[in-house]
C-alpha cells in the first residue's frame, strides 16, 4: 500500500453542552481522503473552513470539546501501522516527531525564547532519535548542512535570527528525525515574497530528498500552484474538490475552486476580478444542502435542499457539485 494516511468518512465536531443547551460546530464533516507516499498534498480553504481542525485530527492533538463523532483514520508508516485514536496515547506519543511532525506558523512561539537553538533541538529531537547526546550533535549539524544552514545558529537565541531564518530553523527541527509524514500549517504566510520562495523551495527540496509526505495548509492559491502535487479544497468543513494541482488550476470543476483561481490578479493582466457575494458560513449554523449554495452563481433549487456527494470524476479527481459540468475550463484565462 502506498498511502501514508487514510481518512474514512471522518466527522469531528466541537460539542458544547452547557446549561442544558447543546451546540455542535461541525468543523470536519464527512471527510474522506488519502495522503500518498512522497507527495505534497495541499489543503486550501478560508478562515473557518475547518482546515486547522482537520490537521488537529491528523496530528492527534484534539482537546475537548473537539471530538471525533464518526469515521476512522489510519496511519501507515511502513514499519508501523496505527490508528491514533484506538491505540494507547503513549504509543502515539512515541511516534511523534520520529514518524510524524509539524512545521508551525508562528516560528517565534515555537522556538523557546530563552533557550539556544541547539538546546531546542535537544528538547524536541533527542528522545525521538534515540541516540546519545554526544552522537546527536553531529547528526544535527549534518542535517543543517543539508539544508544549507550554518551550524553557528545552534549557538544563537531565536531573537537573534530573522523571521525567514527562524522559519528555516523550524523546518530543520521538524525534519531532523526524517519523519514519514509532515504537517505544514501556513509555514510561509508571515514571510516576505523573496524569503517565502526560498523557504518553499527548501520544503520541496527536503521532502524530495527524504521521500516523505507533506500536508501543506495555506489559503494562498499561488503557493499551492507551485509546491503541491494534489490539492483538496475545503469549504465550511467539507471537502468540495480534490485533484492534481495542474488540473485544478486549468479545469476546476467546483464553482468555488473556479472563483478562487480566477480571482487571483496577475502582473501583466488588467482584466477586472471580482469577489464572491456574502461571507463564509458559520459552522455552528451551516446552510442546508450544499453549503456553498448561498454564494454560488450557478446554484439551483436542488442545491439548497440536497447535499452533493463527493464523487469520482476520473483523472484522480473528486468533486462535490451537482452542476460541475457547467463550470467553464480556465486554461485559456490563465495563460
Amino acid at each position: 500500500m502506498s498511502d501514508v494516511l487514510t481518512v474514512n468518512k471522518l466527522k469531528a465536531y466541537y460539542i458544547m453542552n452547557y446549561f442544558g443547551t447543546k451546540r455542535e460546530v461541525r468543523a470536519v464533516d464527512n471527510v474522506s481522503l488519502t495522503i500518498r507516499k512522497n507527495e505534497i498534498y495541499g489543503i486550501a480553504g478560508e478562515s473557518s473552513s475547518g482546515k486547522t481542525s482537520l490537521i488537529k485530527v491528523f496530528a492527534a492533538a484534539m482537546r475537548p470539546p473537539f471530538e471525533i463523532v464518526d469515521g476512522d483514520i489510519k496511519f501507515d508508516f511502513g514499519d508501523v501501522k496505527i490508528d491514533p485514536y484506538a491505540e494507547d496515547k503513549s504509543k502515539v506519543d512515541a511516534l511523534r516527531w520520529s514518524h510524524f511532525s509539524y512545521i508551525m506558523q508562528g516560528s517565534m512561539s515555537v522556538l523557546n525564547p530563552v533557550r539556544k537553538i541547539g538546546k531546542t533541538f535537544e528538547d524536541f529531537a533527542l528522545k525521538p532519535m534515540g541516540v546519545s547526546k554526544a552522537a546527536f550533535k553531529p547528526l544535527v549539524i549534518e542535517h543543517l548542512e543539508k539544508l544549507k544552514l550554518s551550524p553557528d545558529i545552534l549557538n544563537s537565541y531565536p531573537h537573534e535570527l530573522s523571521g525567514g531564518m527562524r522559519q528555516r530553523v523550524t523546518i530543520a527541527l521538524a525534519t531532523v528525525c526524517r519523519p514519514k509524514f509532515i504537517i505544514a500549517d501556513e509555514p510561509t504566510t508571515a514571510l516576505d515574497v523573496v524569503v517565502q520562495k526560498e523557504v518553499l523551495s527548501m520544503i520541496r527540496g527536503i521532502q524530495q530528498e527524504m521521500g516523505s509526505s507533506v500536508v501543506f495548509v495555506t489559503h494562498d492559491m499561488s503557493v499551492h500552484a507551485n509546491i503541491t502535487d494534489r490539492i483538496g479544497i475545503f469549504y465550511a468543513g467539507r471537502l468540495v474538490e480534490e485533484g492534481p494541482t495542474k488540473l485544478m488550476f486549468e479545469q476546476p470543476k467546483h464553482p468555488y475552486t473556479y472563483h478562487l483561481v480566477s480571482s487571483i490578479p496577475r502582473i501583466g493582466d488588467t482584466q477586472r476580478r471580482t469577489s464572491l457575494e456574502g461571507k463564509p458560513p458559520s459552522l455552528a449554523t451551516p446552510p442546508n444542502g450544499c453549503r456553498f449554495h448561498p454564494r454560488c452563481p450557478i446554484a439551483t433549487d436542488k442545491c439548497s435542499q440536497e447535499n452533493p456527494e463527493l464523487i469520482d470524476i476520473g483523472q484522480g479527481r473528486r468533486v462535490a457539485c451537482f452542476h460541475s459540468d457547467k463550470v467553464k475550463p480556465l486554461a485559456e484565462a490563465i495563460q
Partner: peptide, 25 residues
C-alpha cells in the same frame, strides 16, 4: 526585478517553479 521574480505565478500550476533568483539576490 528580484521582487517580481519572487512572485509566485499560477500560470504553470503543478510544476513547482521554486528556484530562487540567486543571481539577483
Amino acid at each position: 526585478q528580484l521582487l517580481k521574480a519572487s512572485v509566485l505565478s499560477i500560470a504553470d500550476a503543478g510544476n513547482g517553479q521554486l528556484a530562487p533568483a540567486t543571481d539577483l539576490i
